[in-house]
Design a protein around this nucleic acid. Structure first.
Length: 464
RNA sequence: UCCUCGAUAGCUCAACGGUAGAGCGAGCGGCUGUUAACCGCUAGGUUCUAGGUUCGAAUCCUAGUCGAGGAGCCA
C-alpha cells in the first residue's frame, strides 16, 4: 500500500477504499474505552482527515496516549462515510503507528490561535498552522503562476547574478560581500581598505535588482524575466519591507510604456485568477479569518481595467481633493504613502497605474519624455499594499542616457557595458519589477510582510 | 533612522506603590460519534536586562535590548 495525500483522499476517496495516510496530529478527542478521533493534517490541503481509531486497533492502549497535537503518525484503514457533521468521509483505522512524539508539555502550538509575533519566533513550527500552511501553498501557486505567465508568452527565464560589483545601482543601500578580515583589512597607501585584495579584486555586494543584466538578455534574446532573491540593506522597519525578498523582473525589447503597462496589468490579474482558481479553500480561510474583504478586493482587481493616471493628473486630483495630507503634495515631489492610499482606496477604489513621473525623482535609466520634464515611469498601485509594481520604458538613446547619468552624478565608466548596449544596435525596451511578498500580502490579506516569506530577514532579525 | 505604544505562567492578557491572578494550553480523573467538545482537580513565575527612587516596585525614574503600529526609503 502506498501513501495517499490527504487532499486527494478528501477529494476522491470513496467508502470501502483501503488507504495509507501519514501526517501530523492536529487534535485528538477521546471516547473512553471505546475509540478516539484524530484530526490528521499532512499539509496537502487546508482540511484535516478525521480518523476513527477503535480500541481494538492493535497497540491502541499503549499508543493512543502519545498521539498528541503535533505528533506524527502513519495510519492505514478503510474509508467510510462519516455519520457526523462536518465531513463527507472519515478513515476507520486498522493500524496505527506513532512515528514521532510531540510532548504536550513542551510542544508550543496549541489548538487555538497564536499571535503572528509569537509564531515568528517558532518559524520552524509555524508552517503546521492553518494560516502558514495556507500561505505556503498560495506562495507556491503564485510562483508557478509567474513562470507559467511568462513561459506561455515565450519569455526566457534568465538568471542574473546575486553577487555584483556594479557599485551604485541606485536602488538603495547594499549588503557588502567580502572575505577580508574585518579586524584588520588590508590598507592601501592612503589608509583606505584595499579591495584589490578582496575575493573579487574589488568591492562586491548582494544585488538590489537584476534589471540591468536582464536588459542585456532582452536586447539579444528577446522577452525575458528574472525571478530571484534581492537584497536591500535599508534600515526599514515597516510591514511592507524586507531586507531579503524575491523579485520578478521582466524586460522586453520593442515594448513602449503602454505595452509595459498592459503586460503588468495582465500579469497581476493572471496571478490573482490562478490563486482564486487553484486555492479555493485557502482563500476561503483567509477571507474568514484574516481579512474579510480579501476576496472582494481580489475580485474587484480582476474585474476592472486598471485606471491609468498621469502623474500630473494624479497631483491635480490630490490638490483638488479637499483632503489635508501630512505631507502637502505639489508637482515635482514624489507621492507619499498617504497620497497613493488616497488615490487607490478613496478616489478610484481600484488598482491604478500612475505614469510619466517627474524626471528629477526617478533613476537615470528611465526614458525621457519630449516635454523635458517627465520620464516614462509607471507604478502599479493597489489598495492596502500600495506600490506592487514599479517599471519604466528604458532610455535607449545613448546621448540622452549619458546626459542623465551626468545629472545623477553617475560615472559612465562604471556602467560601461550598460552604455554599450545603446551604442550597438540599441532598441526601445521596457520592463518592471514586482515584489513577490507584496503579492502574497495582497492575495492573502496578511498585514505584515514578515509573515509572507518563510524565513524573514529584517533589521535585527535573521533567525532560522 | 524618527514618532507612538508595548514586554508579567507555555500562549493571550489582568493586577490604580502594599501577599502576582484569570482564560486558554498542559498533566490527571470523569463524560460523550466527537468537530477550536464538555465537567472537575493539579502543576506552572528571577514580572525583558542593568541601574535608581522608596520602609516597600510588576507598578515610578534613567539607560539598554527586543517587539508592534505609523513615517521615510522602496518592491
Amino acid at each position: 500500500m502506498t501513501r495517499t495525500r490527504i487532499a486527494k483522499v478528501l477529494q476522491d476517496s470513496q467508502p470501502g477504499e483501503q488507504i495509507d495516510v501519514r501526517g501530523w496530529v492536529r487534535t485528538r478527542r477521546d471516547s473512553k474505552q471505546a475509540f478516539s478521533f484524530i484530526e490528521l493534517n499532512d499539509g496537502s490541503c487546508m482540511k484535516n482527515l478525521q480518523i476513527v481509531v477503535d480500541a481494538d486497533v492493535p497497540g491502541y492502549e499503549e499508543t493512543i496516549k502519545q498521539v498528541t497535537t503535533g505528533a506524527s503518525v502513519a495510519i492505514t484503514g478503510e474509508v467510510k462515510e462519516s455519520p457526523g457533521k462536518g465531513q463527507r468521509i472519515e478513515l476507520a483505522a486498522k493500524t496505527l503507528k506513532l512515528l514521532g512524539v510531540a510532548d504536550g508539555q513542551t510542544y508550543p502550538l496549541q489548538k487555538k490561535g497564536h499571535s503572528f509575533e509569537f509564531l515568528r519566533d517558532i518559524a520552524h513550527l509555524r508552517p503546521r498552522t492553518n494560516t502558514f500552511s495556507a500561505i505556503g501553498r498560495v506562495r507556491n501557486v503564485v510562483c508557478d503562476s509567474i513562470h507559467r505567465f511568462f513561459q506561455s508568452r515565450g519569455f526566457l527565464y534568465v538568471q542574473t547574478p546575486i553577487i555584483t560589483t556594479s557599485d551604485c545601482e541606485g536602488a538603495g543601500a547594499m549588503f557588502q560581500v567580502t572575505t577580508l578580515d574585518p579586524e584588520k583589512p588590508p590598507r592601501d597607501d592612503k589608509g583606505n581598505v584595499d579591495y584589490a585584495e578582496d575575493f573579487f579584486g574589488k568591492k562586491a555586494s548582494l544585488t538590489v535588482s537584476g534589471q540591468l543584466e536582464a536588459e542585456i538578455f532582452a536586447c539579444s534574446l528577446g522577452e525575458c524575466y528574472t525571478f530571484g532573491p534581492t537584497f536591500r540593506a535599508e534600515n526599514s522597519n515597516t510591514t511592507r519591507h524586507l531586507a531579503e525578498f524575491w523579485m520578478v523582473e521582466p524586460e522586453m525589447p520593442f515594448y513602449e510604456l503602454t505595452d509595459n503597462m498592459e503586460l503588468a496589468e495582465a500579469f497581476v490579474k493572471t496571478i490573482i485568477n490562478d490563486v482564486l482558481e487553484r486555492c479555493p479553500d485557502d482563500m476561503q480561510f483567509f477571507n474568514e479569518r484574516i481579512d474579510k474583504t480579501v476576496l472582494d478586493t481580489l475580485n474587484n482587481i480582476v474585474s476592472h481595467e486598471f485606471k491609468r493616471v498621469a502623474y500630473t493628473e494624479a497631483v491635480d486630483i490630490l490638490l483638488s481633493s479637499g483632503q489635508t495630507f501630512d505631507y502637502p503634495i505639489e508637482w515635482g515631489k514624489d507621492m507619499q504613502s498617504e497620497h497613493e492610499r488616497y488615490l487607490t482606496e478613496q478616489h478610484f477604489r481600484q488598482p491604478i497605474i500612475v505614469y510619466d513621473y517627474p524626471r528629477t525623482i526617478k533613476p537615470f535609466y528611465m526614458r525621457c519624455n519630449d516635454d523635458g520634464k517627465t520620464v516614462r515611469a509607471m507604478d502599479v498601485l493597489v489598495p492596502r499594499v500600495g506600490e506592487i509594481i514599479g517599471g519604466s520604458q528604458r532610455e535607449e538613446r545613448l546621448d540622452v542616457l549619458l546626459k542623465r547619468m551626468e545629472e545623477c552624478h553617475l560615472d559612465p565608466a562604471e556602467y560601461w557595458w550598460y552604455v554599450e548596449l545603446r551604442k550597438f544596435g540599441t532598441v526601445p525596451h521596457s520592463g518592471f519589477g514586482l515584489g513577490l511578498e507584496r503579492v502574497i500580502q495582497l492575495v492573502t490579506g496578511m498585514t505584515n510582510i514578515r509573515d509572507c516569506i518563510p524565513f524573514h530577514r529584517t533589521p535585527k532579525s535573521a533567525d532560522f
